[in-house]
Design a protein around this nucleic acid. Structure first.
Length: 271
DNA sequence: CCGACAACCTGACGGC
DNA sequence: TGCCGTCAGGTTGTCG
């Protein structure tokens, strides 16, 4: 699902509806997502005012004036719908503002989650405590990567998917960034030269920013909160394009790495 | 530390 | 038209 750009797009879409607004009604339908909703979710959110929205890794953050932050993860198939005409079986949580706007968290596969975390202790919350730096933040540099990957024999692709190394990348954007940087997905991470890591950092930033700019990628069940589709999928260089020609002319290949598809160009990504 | 798998769950798609 | 196998953006855990 949704990787960092899709979550960022989602949060930006929710902000105009939620920021500064009071939650007049909170409805839960089924609570058994990846984790069960906190049992007192409705009580703690109803009547609260939203003070700000944000994102950490692939998690969306909705802070309230009660000292709690609602942290949501969209899993593979989650999305927020704005003012849905009607609710279906996969609308699990509905927030209504005083203004009468409604937001529904829709997640068919239920791999997502919703938690309430004290805002002052967000960084200590277990799922956040071990996260690596934000790829778009100042801490994500070639120096950092060099140190984080030092001595690691695992393939670079696997380590870029590890949220403890860098937080927010998923299968699509890792494939895209490795192609952009000309690095073979199977290359042992600790044996990548510093200049290549500099290219990799730049490629990761570039692909994420371009995807956010485009409103995220459009896959089967991803949509912006308003219902519009994201257009970044049209810009994929390798992901989902097995057999098509890379810009260099070589056919894009696909292989399986521990259960996940890896798309790459065997000519552009040799090192 | 590493790699491979499985589990969680539903829906879309291709092949027959 | 329908049935069946395969695959999908993520996370977490186990096992060897």
């Amino acid at each position: 699902m949704p990787e960092l750009p899709e979550v960022e797009t989602t949060v930006r879409g929710l902000a105009p509806v939620l920021e500064g607004r009071r939650l007049a009604r909170v409805g839960t339908r089924r609570a058994d997502l990846r984790r069960a909703f906190p049992p007192d979710l409705r009580q703690r959110l109803t009547g609260a005012r939203v003070t700000g929205l944000g994102r950490r890794a692939k998690y969306g953050l909705i802070a309230t004036d009660r000292g709690d932050t609602m942290v949501f993860h969209l899993g593979m198939s989650g999305r927020w719908r704005i003012d849905p005409a009607d609710l279906g079986p996969h609308d699990h949580l509905v927030l209504e503002t005083e203004e009468g706007r409604a937001l529904s968290l829709n997640d068919p596969r239920r791999f997502g989650s919703v938690d309430l975390v004290p805002t002052a202790r967000l960084e200590e919350w277990p799922p956040f405590a071990a996260l690596g730096p934000e790829p778009l933040g100042p801490g994500f540099t070639a120096d950092y990567l060099l140190a984080a990957l030092d001595g690691r024999a695992a393939p670079i692709k696997a380590l870029l998917l590890d949220q403890r190394i860098v937080a927010g990348l998923g299968n699509i954007y890792v494939c895209e960034a490795l192609h952009m940087a000309g690095i073979a997905p199977g290359r042992p991470a600790g044996r990548i030269s510093r200049p290549r890591l500099e290219r990799l950092v730049a490629a990761i930033r570039q692909v994420l920013l371009a995807a956010i700019e485009a409103g995220g990628s459009s896959l089967r069940d991803y949509a912006r909160p308003s219902g519009e589709l994201g257009y970044f999928s049209r810009q994929w260089r390798v992901y989902g394009r097995e057999g098509e020609s890379c810009h260099c002319g070589a056919p894009i290949r696909r292989r399986n790495d521990s259960g996940r598809s890896t798309f790459f160009c065997p000519r552009c990504q040799r090192l």
